[in-house]
Design a protein around this nucleic acid. Structure first.
Length: 273
DNA sequence: AAGCCAACCTGGACGC
DNA sequence: TGCGTCCAGGTTGGCT
């Protein structure tokens, strides 16, 4: 569910907690991408002040002095800023109790998410963070693509989804950036022209920034909400994603969907080459 | 060794 | 109403 814009929207909605003391942590041990142990969270983080909340690609890093927490939302994760008086929704695995009567509920029905505590000094070395490529919103996307595309024999779509190349792009925004750049998702990466590559490099941060402005993408299933429970409004701006069979806004041709390594890719067969 | 693909989960939408 | 099937915003590990 959450790609870079959604994670950034969540991060911004939680920023009011920076400078606030974490009083305690509750939850039940459960297996996510890795085992989650709320007791460790309470022991390591209880009583500490949240000093910073950073985003690395789709990961959120919460810095509490010498100890940090890393959270990834997977497909269905939510971080909800709540009053202590609420009743937690189903699949709430972890609750961070902050001073002032506010809490953050980590909810993740599908349990593809990640939530773990690590020494702050170890954060740069964590394999899944160290392996991330440049940030797709803030990094040198042009330089990254100039290096990565010519030497990859897989599709340009699959290169965009590779977090080791560019951190933060997921399926929705990969499809959308390719649509805006007029590039067919299944085109071999090493056969994308320099001109097309430059268009793509420009469209990636552009589409991500627009999505952040709109509060992220909430599909019709209502999956994504910010920390303040707000839906995002970028879905109405999607040109191809989830629009199979509908007309291309630019040329009227039918948007097509095909399966690529188990996932759906959407494109306009006329506008995208 | 890059690049596929199944597996990890639950829930919602759909068809019969 | 219910049951089966397919689908989903991500990542990993095991294979070729």
């Amino acid at each position: 569910m959450p790609e870079l814009p959604e994670v950034e929207v969540v991060r911004r909605s939680l920023l009011p907690l920076v400078g606030v003391r974490l009083q305690g942590v509750t939850g039940f041990p459960i297996k996510l991408r890795r085992p989650l142990d709320p007791d460790t969270w309470r022991r390591q983080l209880g009583g500490r002040i949240l000093e910073d909340l950073e985003r690395h690609g789709k990961y959120l890093v919460w810095r509490f002095g010498s100890v940090s927490a890393v959270i990834h939302l997977g497909m269905s994760g939510r971080l909800l800023l709540c009053e202590e008086s609420r009743s937690p929704q189903p699949h709430t695995h972890l609750i961070l109790h902050f001073e002032g009567g506010r809490a953050v509920d980590f909810v993740d029905p599908r349990r593809f998410g990640l939530a773990e505590v690590v020494p702050t000094s170890a954060v740069p070395g964590i394999s899944y963070l160290a392996g991330l490529g440049e940030d797709a919103l803030l990094g040198d996307v042009g330089g990254v693509l100039a290096r990565a595309l010519p030497r990859s024999r897989s599709t340009v779509w699959s290169v965009l989804l590779d977090q080791r190349v560019l951190a933060g792009v997921g399926n929705i925004y990969a499809n959308e950036a390719l649509a805006r750049a007029g590039i067919a998702p299944v085109r071999p990466a090493n056969r994308v022209s320099a001109a097309a590559r430059r268009r793509l490099a420009a469209e990636i941060p552009r589409v991500l920034a627009e999505a952040v402005e709109e509060g992220g993408t909430t599909l019709t299933d209502g999956g994504f909400v910010s920390g303040e429970f707000r839906s995002g409004y970028f879905a109405v701006r999607l040109q191809v994603y989830d629009r199979a069979g509908m007309p291309c806004y630019r040329c009227g041709a039918e948007i097509r969907r095909l399966r690529q390594s188990g996932r759906s890719v959407y494109f306009c067969p006329r506008c995208q080459r």
